[in-house]
Design a protein around this nucleic acid. Structure first.
Lengths: 244, 244
DNA sequence: ATTTATTATTGGCTAAACGCCACTTAATTG
DNA sequence: CAATTAAGTGGCGTTTAGCCAATAATAAAT
């Protein structure tokens, strides 16, 4: 039909084909008073106008160089800051999830400490933090309930072998607070000694003095802040991991 | 603008917006003579006509009820069988990966034993198994080199804590063959005793007699076949995994 | 038929890791 | 100055992993 790639591309038009909708949704989590929260926005437009949903949106072909850029742009618009952690969770696509037609969405999970976001989000009328359980009890837009569950599950799983929980804590924090955050994310109590043996404090945290956590009693504790670059650290024991 | 969702949907037309291309690509792996292979197809059409690429294609909005169905349909067309294991790896989207414009692809990883595919694939002129290293040395279509690396890395990682390697072995197989498969996928030698202690034979395998692996010498070995439902089993040790 | 080579399977020892719990230390509160 | 609260550490028995050797069962060689 066409003789060269150049000729083929000249006549190519994506609108000659059936194309699905493509969006990006972001489940951003934080910790408020020891409980895991997720940020939702109230939809201002059809479809599902008035319902709460994950922040997200369509790809802007001019502005976004890739999918992650779409996620970051959406997120910054809602939180006013750039999240210290962002990862893709999964991509869902089917004929039923959006009344407009066959639709694909790429779900991202983001983590952020509460403090720097609070003021900005309070000032945005249609965005607020929800305790995760409460968020899931509502009738959310699209399949966002399922998406929140997916991101929540990823976070739970990764808490078992990564340092991700430290990104939802407001620094500086104590090791006890960090352990409680792990417990909140994993849904199970942990042994104090085992936790401290396993978490590589000297690698992943910078000590920034001593003190009591706000309103705390008892002995002062060492205070820490996440060190740069800890997002990819894993403390795994599996098959032949005798190396270091 | 519109007063009801129904009215909004009536006027909605996806072609009024910039929409990216959306495709699904599948990296299907198998083991041939102890080496990991990946299935590639030679592209019959522009763009990148004549180059080798992962099997994949566009969503068929009529036929495919979801993304996984797109992956399965593509795969069955190339291998003639349905793979016993299929999982989504990641979704890549950016402005440069396809000369036709902003493009999103959802990458799936599939695993299959060599035997049942051999005849069918030999009969398809433009599809063949490549040893992974050899496949990566070529100039592949689009960013498929990177996609193969991503799927390969996922497979390497999961070999450390799942039973996935058993799905690329032709049954029946011996425990030694299974261990060698783990070693091939992980790229590191394993201790025989440690491997046998850790792999839950009685849970994940059915014993189907004794014998020698084809052309083998020495003592006969027990022969096994994967049991149904082992795809989700993990043998992990992380934080508080004292629960059996 | 016996020996030799090859591979499967299991045993056992040592060291490291983990769960468990108690002890010591350092602060606040009455 | 007790009593209370929480941080941080010590210690011990159990489990797990790495290492390597012993035994078992077969094919090939003599």
């Amino acid at each position: 039909m066409y003789r060269t790639e150049k000729e083929y591309l000249k006549h190519y038009n994506v609108h000659n084909y059936d194309v699905p909708l493509v969006s990006v949704d972001v489940a951003i989590f934080t910790l408020i008073e020891g409980k895991l929260h997720v940020l939702l926005v109230e939809r201002a437009e059809f479809p599902h106008k008035g319902r709460w949903s994950l922040p997200g949106g369509f790809i802007n072909e001019k502005q976004d160089k890739d999918l992650q850029a779409t996620a970051l742009r959406t997120l910054t618009a809602k939180t006013g800051v750039k999240a210290p952690y962002l990862e893709q969770v999964a991509t869902t696509g089917n004929a039923n999830r959006d009344p407009r037609g066959w639709s694909v969405t790429s779900l991202y999970m983001a983590l952020i400490a509460y403090a720097p976001t609070a003021q900005f989000i309070d000032s945005v009328a249609n965005a607020r933090w929800w305790q995760v359980d409460a968020a899931l009890k509502q009738s959310l837009a699209f399949d966002h309930k399922e998406l929140i569950n997916q991101a929540r599950e990823r976070l739970r799983a990764k808490a078992g072998y990564t340092a991700l929980p430290m990104y939802i804590l407001t620094a500086p924090f104590t090791l006890t607070q960090l352990q409680q955050t792990y417990e909140e994310l994993m849904g199970t109590p942990l042994e104090k000694k085992s936790f401290r043996r396993k978490f590589p404090v000297h690698i992943l945290l910078d000590e920034v003095g001593e003190g009591l956590p706000e309103g705390g009693r008892g002995r002062t504790a060492a205070l820490y802040r996440p060190r740069k670059g800890g997002a990819n650290y894993t403390f795994l024991r599996s098959f032949g991991s005798s190396e270091e």
